[in-house]
Amino acid sequence: MQFKLIINGKTLKGEITLEAVDAAEAEKKFKQYANDNGIDGEWTYDDATKTFTVTE
């Protein structure tokens, strides 16, 4: 399945997509990506659109 991450950071904004088996795997990958890029914020997930959002 394809999942999307919307980044609303203080210095980094944008979207990325990835393939994952389920939402838990996608969340783990997205949070690792955010951590690697210094993004720390409030996370939400919309199951209907398979979209994660992180807002700093």
Results as ranks from 00 to 15, higher is better:
residue 1 M to Y: 11
residue 1 M to S: 06
residue 2 Q to W: 13
residue 2 Q to D: 03
residue 3 F to I: 02
residue 3 F to T: 01
residue 3 F to K: 00
residue 3 F to P: 00
residue 3 F to Y: 04
residue 4 K to E: 03
residue 4 K to P: 00
residue 4 K to V: 06
residue 4 K to Y: 07
residue 5 L to M: 08
residue 5 L to G: 02
residue 5 L to K: 00
residue 6 I to R: 12
residue 6 I to V: 15
residue 6 I to T: 07
residue 6 I to H: 08
residue 6 I to S: 04
residue 7 I to M: 10
residue 8 N to I: 10
residue 8 N to F: 13
residue 8 N to A: 11
residue 9 G to V: 06
residue 9 G to C: 03
residue 9 G to M: 12
residue 10 K to L: 04
residue 10 K to D: 05
residue 10 K to R: 09
residue 10 K to A: 12
residue 11 T to V: 15
residue 11 T to L: 13
residue 12 L to E: 07
residue 12 L to I: 11
residue 12 L to R: 05
residue 12 L to Q: 09
residue 12 L to N: 07
residue 13 K to Q: 09
residue 13 K to N: 15
residue 13 K to I: 08
residue 13 K to M: 12
residue 14 G to D: 05
residue 15 E to S: 06
residue 15 E to Y: 11
residue 16 I to K: 09
residue 16 I to L: 13
residue 16 I to H: 14
residue 16 I to D: 02
residue 17 T to Y: 08
residue 17 T to N: 10
residue 18 L to M: 08
residue 18 L to H: 10
residue 18 L to Q: 08
residue 18 L to K: 07
residue 19 E to L: 08
residue 19 E to F: 13
residue 19 E to G: 05
residue 19 E to D: 05
residue 20 A to K: 02
residue 21 V to F: 15
residue 21 V to A: 09
residue 21 V to S: 14
residue 21 V to N: 11
residue 22 D to L: 05
residue 22 D to W: 03
residue 22 D to I: 04
residue 22 D to H: 13
residue 23 A to G: 08
residue 23 A to S: 13
residue 24 A to L: 11
residue 24 A to F: 10
residue 24 A to M: 09
residue 24 A to G: 15
residue 25 E to C: 03
residue 25 E to D: 04
residue 26 A to P: 00
residue 28 K to G: 06
residue 28 K to N: 08
residue 28 K to Y: 15
residue 28 K to H: 07
residue 29 K to S: 06
residue 30 F to Y: 03
residue 30 F to Q: 00
residue 30 F to T: 02
residue 31 K to Q: 05
residue 31 K to I: 06
residue 32 Q to K: 15
residue 33 Y to T: 04
residue 34 A to D: 00
residue 35 N to P: 01
residue 36 D to I: 13
residue 36 D to T: 14
residue 36 D to H: 14
residue 37 N to V: 07
residue 37 N to M: 15
residue 37 N to L: 07
residue 38 G to A: 12
residue 38 G to W: 12
residue 38 G to N: 09
residue 38 G to T: 06
residue 39 I to W: 06
residue 39 I to C: 03
residue 39 I to H: 04
residue 40 D to A: 15
residue 40 D to I: 06
residue 41 G to L: 02
residue 41 G to V: 02
residue 41 G to E: 01
residue 42 E to N: 08
residue 42 E to F: 15
residue 42 E to C: 06
residue 43 W to M: 05
residue 43 W to A: 01
residue 44 T to M: 12
residue 45 Y to P: 00
residue 45 Y to L: 02
residue 45 Y to I: 02
residue 46 D to G: 02
residue 47 D to K: 12
residue 47 D to P: 15
residue 47 D to T: 08
residue 47 D to S: 15
residue 47 D to E: 04
residue 47 D to N: 15
residue 48 A to T: 14
residue 48 A to K: 12
residue 48 A to Y: 13
residue 48 A to R: 04
residue 49 T to H: 10
residue 49 T to N: 11
residue 49 T to F: 14
residue 49 T to L: 12
residue 50 K to T: 07
residue 50 K to Q: 11
residue 50 K to E: 03
residue 50 K to G: 10
residue 51 T to F: 05
residue 52 F to H: 02
residue 53 T to H: 09
residue 53 T to R: 09
residue 54 V to C: 03
residue 54 V to G: 00
residue 55 T to S: 13
residue 55 T to H: 07
residue 55 T to M: 04
residue 55 T to E: 13
residue 55 T to K: 08
residue 56 E to R: 05
residue 56 E to L: 08
